[in-house]
Design a protein around this nucleic acid. Structure first.
Lengths: 217, 217
DNA sequence: GTCGTAGGTTACGGTTGCGTAAGTTACCTC
DNA sequence: GAGGTAACTTACGCAACCGTAACCTACGAC
């Protein structure tokens, strides 16, 4: 044992004994990071344990296995993301403002919880056919759909087509978030403003200098 | 499909001896299907071999391993998709028409080569950090960027922002394709028309009954 | 200060799936 | 119909990981 030194890459985070809760949270953190970096299958239980400065059975004790840990990690991320998006979409106001807020909410999430977002995007624990991220997207899309349907009626457009447009908007925002996560060459507020600009005005009627209508931290 | 008999799940496609080329192509087909259905890691070499009615070493003979086979499969798909998209984008004409054609090209691809598209979207052979699909997208985005930059100058918009909009458009189209692949509740031409409608006119100025401007098979 | 228990360890069994060595069969050529 | 070669097989070695059984150890309560 001895080992004050870390062998290969493992940064032995803790050394001391912890309470169950603490250890559990720590394992979740460590796992999150690893899953984000290397994906589900490429991450091994031993690696997780090592990086938490603990031995393998501890992981099994808390989560019953890799899948168990992964499930909890994903569940938390899904909930967190869904919460902020739903929050943004269910404040009342002009559809344009809702869009703006939802976009900002996603970008915030991408910024603050990059690892989590990366996990969701990667998804792929083979088991569930419906990737959890896909189902999150379709959940959000259905919220957007309702907003759009109302808006369409007002504008004398066919509400039957709302699902398509909902899907497109969600896709646009989601993939833009994904892209922004890696490139990061533009400011968050700018990305959001352009997002809204394109979605609202279209290429034919774009504002030259789009600005946000919402005050934000 | 010249299937003779299937046992449990493995559809032993061939029984007879083949030439090297034939076998190679057959293995690529089989692999493509399996990778699309189960992903890279979940697919085993034995499974591929079995489904091709052949034994494992044959696969190693032709491709040197699972990764080798996968690489060829992905490479072909990337090329194919990139070709049709690039083709659509490099015909000259109104930007709106280009968008329309590119959208249709993608949807065609999704329709005709569903397995391939699913593989690309899944991607994830751990190795290359830059998922091949991501790099394809950014490739396409850069093409779109140039088209947009020209268009922006004409419209007195800032060409510096073209990359963002390019990314958004590509994201919108790509994720819509992904969604359409699974849902399939709308007709291809309709999806394309709505795609163009949103991108071009925006939510504020949508046409009630968008129609395509291009004649298509 | 002993003792119960939560927190932790070492060490192993078992499966899975990759990759290869060595040998076999059909087919084509002369 | 002998033999060479391309196509293919059986059989195995081996490494990685998962998961578990069995055994320690710090530490607060009494």
């Amino acid at each position: 044992m001895v080992t004050t030194a870390d062998e290969t890459t493992a940064t032995t985070t803790s050394r001391a004994r912890m309470t169950g809760k603490q250890r559990r949270e720590q394992l979740l953190e460590v796992g999150r990071k690893l899953f984000a970096d290397k994906g589900f299958e490429a991450t091994t239980v031993e690696e997780i344990a090592a990086k938490a400065g603990v031995s393998k059975p501890v992981v099994y004790e808390h989560f019953g296995g890799k899948e168990g840990l992964y499930a909890v990690v994903v569940d938390r991320e899904i909930r967190a993301l869904l919460d902020v998006i739903t929050g943004a979409l269910s404040s009342h106001g002009h559809a344009r403002v809702l869009l703006e807020q939802a976009a900002l909410a996603l970008l915030d999430y991408v910024e603050n919880s990059t690892d989590g977002f990366r996990i969701l995007v990667r998804d792929s624990p083979a088991g569930q056919s419906t990737g959890s991220f896909a189902s999150l997207l379709s959940d959000v899309a259905s919220q957007v759909e309702h907003i759009l349907a109302a808006e369409f009626k007002r504008q004398k457009l066919d509400p039957k087509t709302a699902p398509i447009y909902a899907q497109m908007l969600v896709g646009m925002v989601a993939l833009t978030g994904q892209w922004w996560m890696d490139s990061r060459k533009f400011k968050k507020a700018d990305v959001a403003a352009h997002l809204v600009n394109l979605a609202w005005n279209g290429l034919a009627g774009m504002e030259p200098k789009p600005i946000l209508r919402t005050a934000r931290k």
